[in-house]
């Protein structure tokens, strides 16, 4: 239960940060910018060893936001380098996130077949 509450608070705060970036900075920030920014920054934070402890502590509060996707990419690359060397640097991140990406593509396609845009 405590873990769920923690996920709520930390996940909420990560979303809040993005909202403040949209509303308070003078730049035009679109969802595309937010998604790209979170993945990249999440991967970098993970590489320097900051995001890992956050995931240990906040669980889904840190893995569900897109920065968690970046974390998975970074850790996948590092783990794979340890196992396979240079080849792992290229494939590791994609392997670690392949389920989520494939799910998005497959479900996206299925939804496009089933539904029509409502506007």
């Amino acid at each position: 239960m405590e873990k769920i509450l923690l996920a709520f608070v930390i996940g909420g705060l990560l979303c809040l940060l993005a909202q403040l970036l949209i509303d308070l900075t003078p730049f035009t920030i679109t969802p595309g910018h937010i998604l790209v920014g979170y993945v990249t920054v999440g991967a970098l934070l993970s590489a320097v060893g900051i995001y890992g402890p956050l995931v240990q502590w906040a669980g889904a509060g840190a893995t569900v936001p897109l920065s968690g996707f970046g974390h998975a990419l970074a850790q996948g690359a590092i783990r794979s380098v340890e196992q396979r060397g240079l080849l792992g640097a290229f494939g590791g991140g994609i392997e670690a996130t392949s389920i989520g990406v494939a799910a998005a593509v497959i479900f996206g396609y299925a939804m496009a077949v089933i539904f029509n845009p409502k506007g």
């Binding site: 979303c15 940060l17 949209i22 969802p31 998604l35 593509v105 496009a112």
Partner: peptide
């Protein structure tokens, strides 16, 4: 951002465009 930042938002961006 509450529905953009979570991975559901990533999914939304793919499905909305596909649809």
């Amino acid at each position: 951002a509450g529905s953009i930042v979570p991975i559901t938002g990533f999914s939304n961006s793919i499905v909305a465009s596909a649809l």
